[in-house]
Amino acid sequence: MKLAGLRSVENAHDESIWAAAWVPATDSRPALLLTGSLDETVRLWRPDELAAVAPPSRGHALGVVAAAAHPSGALAAAASLDSSVRVFDVDSNASVTSLDAPPSEVWGLQFDPKGTVLAVAGGGSASVKLWDTSTWQLIATLAVPRPDRARPDRTGSGKFVLSVAWSPDGRRLACGSMDGTVAVFDVARAKFLHHLEGHHMPVRSLVFSPIDARVLFTACDDTHVHMYDAEGKSLVGAMSGHASWVLSVDASPDGAAIATGSSDRTVRLWDLSTRTAVQTMTNHTDQVWAVAFRPPGGTGVRAGRLASVSDDKSISLYDYS
């Protein structure tokens, strides 16, 4: 289990890169890397050589904070600071729709594994919004209840939902907030199940294990990565080692490792069997905002790929084996 640097593109964007997601391969093309940046553009990159696929696609008024790809590989969505979500066709770069939300009520986004629902972390609304991907209508709002022991906060709701993740079976949805609460929902019944406790700082990223729908990894500003049993409401393990905030986490497709990006400018690979960092990549010169494993599938290529993007405007691609 190791990472090997394949390629790095300096100045891939004009400004800090904040979001990265893999667009799954389709019949006609391999999987592509989607990046979003403060320079208000979203760009697509062909892997291994990291060549720009198309000219930068504009259409955002402010920096792009999150990007997600439809499992089919045809669509992608990007959210910017002005709280607009732009859904566009990956190949033609044509806008499909623009989901308008009140400002400050959009942050992270994620398509469900089947591709029928887009979950949007609702920021200041303290909820997760679910959008039907065929009609682009809002179908549900999953509100995060205030935990009893929540700190009194002067801001409106006292919550700001930053991140959202689907379980691989599509039945559960988890979201992370600025005060460290992680909420788990039953999607089918649109019902809040419980909080996962242990964090007290913003949870900026979370991901379910691709092989086990109960296991949830959370990346938090408290420099730790937690591993929860999402159903059993318990903390399974914690992984420490980053010197600063953990900004993003992603699980490898084989479920044996997770990768994290952090404010300490490193990317770490963690072995889940030992729960230790097996490798630390220090090629970025500024905080790493997103890490993403390439999903399996596509034409022939079985090799694992990890991409990381950073404030230093660069994208790095690693071979994971």
């Binding site: 904040w18 403060l38 904070v65 600071l81 400050s104």
Partner: peptide, 25 residues
């Protein structure tokens, strides 16, 4: 504007940053 956006990206729950961005824009 960029600096404010970075700040907002780090702390999206800080309301005044939205106002700052608004004014810079």
């Amino acid at each position: 504007k960029c600096s404010y956006q970075r700040a907002l990206h780090l702390a999206p729950w800080q309301a005044n940053l939205y106002a700052d961005i608004a004014m810079s824009v």
